[in-house]
């Protein structure tokens, strides 16, 4: 098992290097003067000062030298400065990441419970009412633009009913207001995640329940609930876990638009507003963070599936 984990960890390193190189080249392609985001604005000063800084910081060095310097600075926690506001990027990220994680994690938990739950029930009672409603709901949920759904929720529950606040994460009123702020964005993200998950869990469970070892287990006289949970559910979980991991990018990508709808102060809104403002350094560092966190998440899923299914870690 340890060997498997180490192998997977080592595989991540070249991946991260390639991604960061691409991001760095992308930054170069836009032709923005690196000094504008590497130096705190108060330090910049006069033109000759800038020229001296450029020489001192080695900005006239070849691309690869600069790339490796950039990576090592990032590893030391120095991410540079926003060219729009002049704030250190590390500071922006430190404020924004918890907000996005809060949103994404809650949506992930709720959608997994609801989606997998309904999916499995509809597989067990195939062609029943829950199955039918669930299937229609899944297609409809995939077809409505997420942000449109969010706006509908705002109109009904915030504007008309006045039950929930819109915009930002906290308003005066302590922890209760925090939860109130979370309800609508989490519901929006959860529903769109649910649609895909439900469908997938149902189909996987159907496949498993039609397999030979389930028939064998039944013919041995094992009670049906035991067959479903011990033989069916356990084996259906692995592919479902994998799809949850694959959905993670979608969850974070989807949060770009959803966060904008609800003016949620997370990574998504900062990416969207940086793209509008052309704040390249912020875009690059934040997307790199997103990519890195997805790599870590998929690593965790690999480890988790290996724990559930020995074939994975013995396979290759």
């Amino acid at each position: 098992m340890l060997k498997f984990i180490i192998k997977k960890l080592l595989q991540m390193i070249p991946m991260l290097l390639v991604i960061s190189l691409l991001v760095f080249i992308g930054l170069e392609l836009t032709g923005i003067d690196p000094l504008s985001y590497m130096v705190s604005p108060d330090m910049a000063g006069s033109a000759e000062n800038l020229e001296r800084l450029r020489e001192q910081m080695g900005l006239n060095d070849p691309l690869f030298t600069r790339y490796f310097r950039w990576v090592s600075e990032m590893l030391r926690g120095d991410f540079g400065y926003s060219i729009v506001s002049g704030t250190p990027i590390s500071q922006i990220i430190a404020v924004r990441i918890p907000a996005t994680i809060e949103l994404a994690l809650l949506a992930l938990v709720f959608s997994t419970i609801i989606g997998v739950g309904i999916g499995i029930v509809s597989a067990i009672k195939q062609n029943g009412i829950i199955d039918y409603v669930g299937r229609v709901f899944a297609v409809v949920g995939q077809s409505i633009p997420q942000f449109f759904f969010g706006i509908i929720l705002i109109q009904i529950f915030a504007v008309s009913m006045g039950w929930f606040p819109v915009g930002q994460r906290i308003s005066p009123g302590g922890n209760w207001s925090r939860i109130q702020h979370l309800v609508l964005p989490v519901t929006t993200l959860t529903l769109s995640m649910c649609a895909v998950l439900m469908r997938y869990a149902r189909n996987t469970m159907l496949d498993v329940m039609n397999s030979d070892y389930i028939k064998t287990a039944r013919s041995k006289g094992i009670p049906e609930w035991k067959v479903i949970i011990k033989h069916g559910f356990r084996n259906a979980m692995r592919p479902v876990l994998v799809i949850i991991c694959f959905r993670l990018p979608m969850l974070i990508g989807g949060s770009v638009v959803i966060e904008s709808v609800f003016s949620w102060p997370g990574i998504g809104t900062i990416i969207a507003s940086s793209v509008i403002a052309g704040d390249m350094p912020v875009i690059m560092v934040t997307t790199l963070m997103v990519a890195a966190s997805i790599l870590v998440a998929s690593f965790l899923v690999d480890v988790f599936t290996a724990l559930l299914d020995p074939r994975v870690r013995l396979g290759d």
Binding site: M250, V256, G278, T287, V290, A291
Partner: peptide, 14 residues
């Protein structure tokens, strides 16, 4: 590794 929406946004910037 990049969420599609974010990939699209990066390309829009470039």
């Amino acid at each position: 590794t990049f969420p599609q929406m974010i990939l699209i946004l990066i390309m829009v910037t470039i």
